[in-house]
């Protein structure tokens, strides 16, 4: 078991490392400038100058603390949007890419079930998710202490740990598109589009009469701001995300088991 996951993960080592380094640098930069920004810029005035939807999306007013600043700049942007899109995009290539380049034929000539192929390939995405979270989590915690604005360790752990179900859900959306679209590029663009669209849906509908619709978006269930600023952890939301991810993977496996590979 897990030979496919092992092989696929190995192929992601380099990309995962690069991603972790990039995001760690971004985190370090934000931490370096955070104290200055907080003391010099009148963020409340800045927030009032922006359209309500935008200031709502990035919770500008809460940026007055290091926690709020990191939640907005690093986690809201780097995790919710950037990593979410990256995982959806990567997952979208898992099946469609192999089918399109005739690699799936060779893989399926082995005594493996299609369900196993789908599940194990999906699990290989745990590597970038875990590497990035561990590396950047450590950098954020150490960096904050270094600039004299120490963070609560539990909050740092929580903001990273609770991002895992969110990122798995984004990946599962990509996976589903990977078994639905015939071409890899279509699946990838589609997956990125869906994940970003869901983010926009939540951003635009939150606080309106259509707020229940916003709950369709995975971003609804992962709120770095609440975790870091209020130490409020949405464990039910995380559980729901895991269930949704599992359901999407199961649906993808079912679809892949029944489709023609050509």
């Amino acid at each position: 078991m897990f030979e496919i996951t092992r092989y696929e993960s190995e192929r992601r080592v380099l990309a995962s490392g690069a991603l972790a380094v990039g995001l760690a640098l971004m985190a370090a930069m934000f931490l370096a400038i955070a104290p200055d920004i907080i003391s010099q810029v009148d963020l409340e005035a800045y927030a009032e100058a922006l359209p309500p939807a935008f200031s709502n999306a990035f919770d500008i007013a809460a940026m007055g603390t290091v926690e709020g600043f990191l939640a907005t700049e690093l986690y809201q942007f780097g995790w919710v949007i950037l990593l979410g899109l990256y995982l959806a995009y990567s997952a979208a290539g898992l099946i469609a890419g192999d089918v399109e380049r005739d690699r799936m034929d060779l893989l399926l000539a082995n005594p493996v079930s299609r369900r196993r192929v789908v599940v194990e390939k999906f699990l290989s995405l745990l590597l970038p998710i875990l590497v990035v979270n561990v590396v950047v989590g450590a950098v954020v915690y150490a960096g904050a202490a270094l600039v004299g604005e120490p963070l609560a360790p539990v909050d740092v752990v929580a903001v990273h740990a609770l991002s895992v179900p969110y990122l798995l859900t984004c990946a599962a959306i990509g996976l589903l598109l990977s078994v639905l679209a015939r071409r890899e590029s279509v699946a990838q663009r589609g997956a990125a589009g869906v994940v970003f669209g869901l983010f926009m849906l939540e951003t635009l509908l939150t606080g309106t009469d259509y707020e229940p619709l916003a709950r369709l978006s995975p971003t609804w269930y992962y709120d770095p701001m609440a975790i870091l600023v209020e130490s409020s952890y949405d464990l039910v939301g995380a559980a729901l995300l895991l269930v949704a991810a599992a359901a999407l993977v199961a649906l993808s496996a079912r679809r892949f088991t029944r489709m023609d590979v050509r």
């Binding site: 380049r101 005739d102 690699r103 034929d105 060779l106 000539a109 005594p111």
Partner: peptide, 17 residues
């Protein structure tokens, strides 16, 4: 899957990583 344990497949233009 049982059969594939004893089957080899050689495509005309093999797709590899």
């Amino acid at each position: 899957i049982e059969a594939r344990k004893r089957i080899g497949y050689l495509p005309s233009d093999p797709g590899f990583d």
